[in-house]
Design a protein around this nucleic acid. Structure first.
Lengths: 237, 237
DNA sequence: GTCTATAGGAAGATAGAC
DNA sequence: GTCTATCTTCCTATAGAC
């Protein structure tokens, strides 16, 4: 399901160098480790990534030290570097694998076709459903976006966001053209509103709480499609 | 307009100590500096806070070093400590002053009374309007919330959030009771949806772009109140 | 695959001269 | 109010033994 593996994707060079004593510059990502190509990406390695992702989500990428990650894994910090080039490589793996999967889900939703409202609903459901398995990645993506985007290594983040935006906006515009959605709403603002609402939910959503992600999706669609007002709509009778 | 000054508010103790080599523990905030009480809070100091806030927003609180703040101000890092106890004190001032003002605005909006829909609209407008003057504070609040909340010094953040939530939910519930809002929407989920949508806009909103915050507020209210669907509503005819 | 040991740097903060 | 100079701590990452 991965169109781009984290070990090969993203742009290589680091033009960000050291612009005036900024944050610790990420290592130059030498891109080695051509082994464990497909399936069994070293069990252990997967564990480490997952575990690190949780820490990143909890405390922020920068606030999480490699020592803490190692501690959590029951090894010493130096040993981590047997598995990863750098701390950035770890978060890279967390984020890129999430984005790959999400885009895959979106494309699958599109391919099913259907009415605009149905299609939009399917995108919304797919997005909400990803909250549970990818809590950590989504949280990091939000909290550390501003930091990570500084580095060319993470340029693919903005690329992915662009593509995601295109997908949603196409559906919204198509819905307007077909008369399913109001013509007086702005597609871009509407997309952003949808995106923001869904993703930020990761901050308060508790997977083991009473509400499932499908409940959230349903509630959101109720409001999104028909609004919260009671009685007649205040426009076009 | 400040009900709690950043120099006196918040809980003093730091029970977070050093739980196992976590992030650099914030200084214990000795709460000195009883001077410059009211108006002229030392021009310079205000400048420094504003300038630091922008850096925090841009790069994240932790990624911003005291050296960078000092650089931006044209002084050396050591000199900053003539004005502030610690880096945390600076961000504290940024956040608490914002929250004080926001709560003041909300209370003012409530006091005007009016129909539920009108009242909710006023809250929404107030929130959107704060995007422009408080971009930095809102950005930091979002990006570094998870990190800052670890420290008891910033316990007031959750207190403020609680109070804000109470205000919004009261209005929503009241609107449902009075038949202005649909009874089948969940007040809490709806509040969160509103909150998330408004605040996250800070990530993409450009104050000097074509859209004013009032435009955003209006578009949001359009969708929130009546939904994006065209034609008849899909429930209660 | 993990450990020992440590290099090398950058961070927050302080003391006292000016 | 700012600078000089520096302390202390903690960070990421490396090298090589086991």
């Amino acid at each position: 399901m991965n169109t781009r593996s984290s070990a090969t994707g993203a742009s290589p060079s680091d033009q960000d160098s050291d612009q005036g004593g900024g944050a610790r510059t990420p290592s130059r990502a030498p891109r080695r480790r051509g082994r464990q190509s497909s399936a069994l990406a070293s069990e252990r390695r997967v564990d480490l990534v997952r575990l690190a992702a949780d820490l990143f989500a909890q405390k922020g990428f920068q606030a999480t030290t490699v020592r803490e990650i190692a501690d959590e894994a029951g090894i010493l910090s130096g040993s981590l570097y047997h598995h990863f080039d750098s701390k950035e490589s770890i978060v890279d793996e967390v984020l890129s694998s999430y984005l790959d999967e999400l885009l895959g889900d979106y494309r699958a939703a599109l391919e099913q076709g259907g009415e605009p409202r149905e299609l939009l609903g399917r995108l919304i459901s797919a997005a909400y459903r990803s909250l549970k398995p990818h809590r950590a990645a989504i949280t990091v993506l939000q909290n550390d976006w501003n930091y990570l985007r500084q580095f060319s290594r993470f340029g693919y983040l903005e690329e992915a966001e662009q593509e995601i935006q295109r997908i949603w906006m196409d559906v919204i515009r198509d819905g307007q053209a077909k008369g399913a959605f109001r013509p007086d709403i702005d597609p871009k603002l509407t997309y952003r509103m949808i995106r923001d609402t869904i993703w930020v939910a990761v901050r308060w959503y508790r997977p083991d709480g009473p509400l499932g992600t499908d409940d959230l999706a349903e509630h959101f669609m109720t409001v999104l499609f028909d609004g919260i007002s009671f009685g007649e709509r205040s426009f076009e009778s």
